[in-house]
Amino acid sequence: MIFYALLTFMVVSALALLWLRNLFAVVMLSGSFSLNAAVLYVVMDAVDVAFTEAAVGAGIATVLMLGTLALTTSHEKADPGVSWPHLAVVVVVGAALIYGTLDMPRYGDPMAPIHQHVAPEYIERGPKQTGMPNVVTSILASYRGYDTLGEVTVVFTAAAGVLALIGRRRKKKNGVIKRTRSGERP
């Protein structure tokens, strides 16, 4: 029951995000949207994921968006109105996807194909081979270490990209913004 209440609340939040014009409110609401998702992950037994979402989605992402608002503007200009071609695309794609779900295994079905492949092996062998009760950590760090190495590289690259894009401090001269060589050094 709480599962469906949370899902409904997420849809309401997303619709409110669509309608709001004040970007400050949009950012705060997207933070609460993330927190809502984190609670949903706990309901679905994914405690590690919930932990990450609460720290990252509701915490850091909100702070970064607020930082961007301080650097740009906090109010959206005019309401673009309903864009009918885009709405039509969304409805068609959504209908196709919903048609596709009719063949999906039902929610919580223990016989679903996803639970028959490698997952039971991980749960059975993980604690024996790595000596760790948390199966998520043993898969993350050991069985799928390559995967995680790639993800850490992406985080590294994104930080390097942010440094390359706006790492140098800007200076305003006659209304033209220039970035100086001095970089981000204080």
Binding site: V49, A119, D147
Partner: peptide, 9 residues
């Protein structure tokens, strides 16, 4: 646990 790992990262 497998989807948890994928989504966590």
């Amino acid at each position: 646990p497998l989807p948890h790992v994928l989504i966590l990262t």
